[in-house]
Design a binder for these strands. Structure first.
Lengths: 226, 226
DNA sequence: AATTTCATGTAATTCGTTACATGATTCC
DNA sequence: GGAATCATGTAACGAATTACATGAAATT
């Protein structure tokens, strides 16, 4: 019951799996570290955390810094609340990770899944990447069909919008192709049904992503932005 | 009051400005012809149409086919409802078109605006394109900053996600640059305060978009899809 | 005759935001 | 000591979806 959000729940569990955190920090990581993928507000996050606690997947802990705990105990002061994943929460997250329902291919859902690929088994990674790709290919076909049907009735701008949209999708398909290829390459020999199941993966083994030219130089002219 | 949806309202008015239509067809055009931009369901569309009628921007007309009107008059039968833009509606849409609030640069809003560029004055087109571009450049800066701050703490997949996201944004900026350039080129000489205001633009004058290689051949292997 | 597609709607529910309210900590 | 940022929450609202309910027209 209380089937909260899906993607937010998933992302929160995933982030907390790496390390305990309080809400404020959680939100920042949600909005920056994890790709471009959507900005949640506190009004969304805090109630969600409550629910996850109620489900037994998280526990609230007083802030870890000793003076905080002291200050909190002295008066009725409010201290930072650090959320930590419980064993049940870990289990639940792992279950979510292996679920490859057809929702997993949708835009934001996919991005969230991808963001936690580091904690995902290779087999599942493949399913998600391939599922996403065929979802996009479906979309492309629909776009092509609709374009073929209506091309002459459309003005230049509408046409240009369609063209650009299609090109974006095509570009993502190419990206997925590269990723899938390098997953396959990383598989090498031996990856039978007894996969290593990298539950507590610390080894630097990620299969080796397609090295793109890192044009993203540090750019010293801005650090924390305005 | 009853500030409905924004983008749906805008798109509906824009589509009906071209020709009267009934709800079902409207929805199809919303989801196909107008770029990739989001699929609205009937549960959203019909109530919205009601509101627009209540505001005096649309009127409901019985289906135009003569047998339908006849059938409807005979019994209490339900006939197709064709929506037509009123004079007030036309005026309202034109007002929305010229509005360039900061919302106009956001993803979906922008797509909707762009889709109706054929009915938009050149000056406004420029403002929207440039606004969108600077919005994206802001976003890029934030992404670069956040990446510079967190690069070493991130695993390969998260990094790859970020990289791909940034590249997508960069690509759109390049697209906008082309568009802006060709808008400027189309302006030629003379485009003072007395612009032609293409209210009932039928002339093929659109300024000439950057001709991209039309790789979108008809593809006879699917017409109306499954 | 049955199925698909066209066509219009409503009610309940989900997901998420904005605005508000409060207070602690850090930096200048 | 004042501003910015950190930190946690709630209530009211908004936008849109899903599932439901209905029925006509076209196609097979």
């Amino acid at each position: 019951m209380s089937r909260r959000s899906g993607i937010l729940e998933f992302a929160v569990l995933g982030l907390l799996r790496e390390a305990p955190m309080h809400g404020y920090e959680l939100r920042k990581r949600l909005n920056t570290s994890l790709g471009v993928f959507r900005a949640f507000s506190y009004g969304t996050l805090y109630p969600c955390l409550k629910t996850l606690v109620a489900n037994g997947w998280l526990i609230e802990e007083p802030g870890s810094a000793p003076e905080e705990a002291l200050a909190a105990s002295l008066a009725g002061r409010r201290a930072k609340i650090v959320y930590r994943l419980t064993a049940a929460g870990k289990e639940h997250f792992e279950e979510l990770l292996s679920h490859t329902g057809p929702d997993a291919w949708e835009d934001e859902h996919f991005a969230a899944r991808f963001a936690f690929f580091g904690q995902t088994e290779r087999e599942v990674r493949m399913r998600v990447l391939e599922g996403r790709r065929s979802r996009l290919e479906e979309r492309l076909e629909k776009m092509r069909a609709s374009l073929a049907r209506t091309r002459e009735r459309l003005d230049d701008y509408t046409l240009e919008l369609q063209r650009h949209g299609m090109e974006s999708v095509e570009r993502e398909v190419r990206w997925l192709n590269e990723l899938i290829e390098s997953e396959r390459a990383g598989r090498d020999r031996r990856s039978g049904p007894d996969a290593p199941a990298l539950h507590d993966n610390e080894s630097g083994e990620t299969g080796g992503l397609p090295r793109h030219g890192g044009s993203t130089r540090p750019d010293p002219s801005d650090d924390t932005a305005k």
